[in-house]
Design a protein around this nucleic acid. Structure first.
Lengths: 351, 351
DNA sequence: CCTCCATGATGATGCGCATTATCGGGCTGG
DNA sequence: CCAGCCCGATAATGCGCATCATCATGGAGG
């Protein structure tokens, strides 16, 4: 029989047994010796010995409240990570985040609450900001809540964002360089001789959409292309209709660039049904990477460096956490990798 | 221009503006009015109004330190959840956990640290018990660390375990009823006329292994089977060798029961290579469910109710968290679902 | 002998909140 | 007119830890 229900040992328990003050215990445990505050090796050792003997473990809550660090990076996703289909999107980010966290000696704390009662998901659900449990946080999601972000920043909470979001005032974020990657895709098509390139942009006004648009317009202007009658906003869920595709073909399109790979895949289906050969008669490219393990030919597209984005976000966060001074907010854009794929080929139609 | 870097509002700020005490604010915010402590609706409203105006959100850290609850259930996995292959195992549990957490009004906090420097993973890494950040915790893993569990219990931390683990002293856990499920599999084979049933048990001495063994022996005795020369401990990674399988067949085996589905799958391969028809000449069954999306015939086996186990674990935990008194530890075993599958058939060999 | 400085600490304070014990005042009944 | 009671609060305390300012001691230098 052991002692039943004995209390967790606290620093003051150690202090009493080691014949020192609680302050000293805290200093020793946290290695806070410095020029102005010195503990001789013997005392140090004594404290450690007693701590081990008692089985002391620090309470992260108290430590945190007192302004200490727990080497915890939080991860918050603005959408629920479950069920699985969402997960496929998040997974590479999470792998990158965990890898970086481990490399830097941090643990990862994932906040995964379901959607709130109002349907939306907020950091401040129930009037509590759970994120504070971590030392800092990586925020992640397709639909980030700008108000929450601005508020977090105003509160002095340290975080980095994955994905560019225009918030009033500067914040630190990591994004992919969609604009340049989009230009590369267009360049590729132009090199293949395409001049009438249809552009299936996204209907939503998010920053990634704007970046791709900017890249596309830049490449268009650079190559002197004419996109008259060739631009079509498409909602991801709906995809283009057969009529719309026919209209674009009728307008002379020999190549299609779609924001969303699922839209591109749907387009491939439609073209096949119409008897249009890809890439023989017509090329198709997407401006992000397709879901893993889709059958069929490899899509001409670019890969978003999700893993690296996760890693970089953690690195930037830890940098903030470990610096004494205020760190200037930074914006990082990582390059995407162009994938030539099998859905684009030379333009056969006269020109 | 707004006020730069204004402090986050605290309860005392609200108190000042509302002309009440910090105590009152706390009481109102947490709805702690009772018979002995009453706040009139007007004061209540005033506090709420000021709180909203200031944008007050409670600090979970302080709340936690002061003994309050944050409606957070932690999830700790004894193995790292990354990379993905591990994830496939955890996923159904996590889905169940999140679903239950949401239904009960709790958020989920996932602790995912990588393996420690010693290769092992411990709750008490770096001398901090991070789990305390949550109000309580669901512990999950194939290789649970008994010492950590015992210690957590001794510290009075509230948690439930998924998977039975024999720890000195009682704890609350949720497991699957492997013994009964194993008996059902054996019953099925006996109904099909099999009398010489080879048993490929697991080599490790974990509790799930012991449960299955118990079920198998019970069914064997009940049916009066003779398993002489038919029992073979198999390591999951290695699987049985062709020689071993031949030896079991030579000993008259007309059916195989393997602990691990991967072992059963490997067995199917070996039998095919030997020209033994399944289920024509020989039946094969597994004592857990196969990984998703394996090609080939559906295995005779049983499904472990992972999702439900996750759900139940959270329910038990919340019950503990919300009861004033100490809750008696409970053990729950959920039934598995038998899957007839296509790898078992009638015994054709004389008998 | 007194000052100065380095050494080796420690007491006090506060982080933001929940809780316990307590308190003043108005009202009612005797 | 006072005892007792209920209403509407509140002051004080502590959770466990980190940190700031401070302090006692002893030896060296003047």
């Amino acid at each position: 029989m052991k002692d039943v229900q004995r209390r967790r040992p606290r620093q003051s328990d150690i202090a009493k047994l080691a014949g020192v003050s609680q302050t000293t215990v805290s200093i020793v445990i946290n290695g806070r010796e410095s020029d102005t505050i010195r503990i001789p090796p013997e005392t140090r050792q004594r404290v450690f010995d007693v701590a081990r003997a008692l089985g002391y473990v620090a309470d992260p809550v108290a430590r945190s409240l007192a302004g200490g660090m727990n080497h915890l990076v939080g991860v918050y996703t603005f959408e629920s990570m479950f069920p699985m289909d969402q997960h496929d999107f998040y997974y590479p980010f999470l792998v990158g985040i965990e890898a970086a966290a481990e490399a830097l000696g941090y643990d990862m704390l994932m906040f995964t609450s379901a959607t709130g009662s109002d349907g939306g998901r907020s950091i401040y659900r129930d009037g509590v900001n759970r994120l504070r449990l971590a030392d800092g946080c990586v925020l992640l999601g397709k639909e980030t809540n700008r108000d929450d972000i601005a508020r977090l920043r105003d509160e002095g909470f340290r975080f980095t964002l994955i994905g560019r979001r225009d918030v009033s005032g500067p914040i630190t974020y990591v994004t992919a360089d969609y604009a340049t990657a989009t230009e590369e895709v267009v360049d590729h098509l132009v090199e293949l001789g395409h001049e009438r390139i249809a552009y299936l942009t996204a209907a939503d006004p998010s920053e990634p959409t704007a970046d791709r648009d900017a890249g596309f317009w830049a490449a268009r202007d650079r190559h002197g292309l004419d996109t008259g009658g060739l631009v079509l906003p498409v909602r991801k869920e709906a995809g283009p209709t057969a009529d719309e595709v026919r209209r674009l073909l009728g307008a002379g399109a020999t190549a299609f660039v779609a924001h969303e790979s699922v839209v591109a895949l749907r387009l491939l289906d439609l073209l096949r049904d119409m008897g249009v050969d890809v890439p023989g008669a017509c090329s198709v490219a997407a401006l992000n990477d397709p879901p893993d393990a889709v059958p069929g030919p490899e899509l001409t597209c670019f890969r978003i460096p999700r893993r690296e984005m996760g890693t970089r976000a953690v690195e930037l966060l830890v940098e903030q956490l470990e610096s004494e001074a205020e760190v200037e907010p930074r914006a990082v854009a990582l390059p995407c990798t162009f994938v030539a794929g099998q859905t684009s080929g030379p333009n056969r139609k006269g020109s």
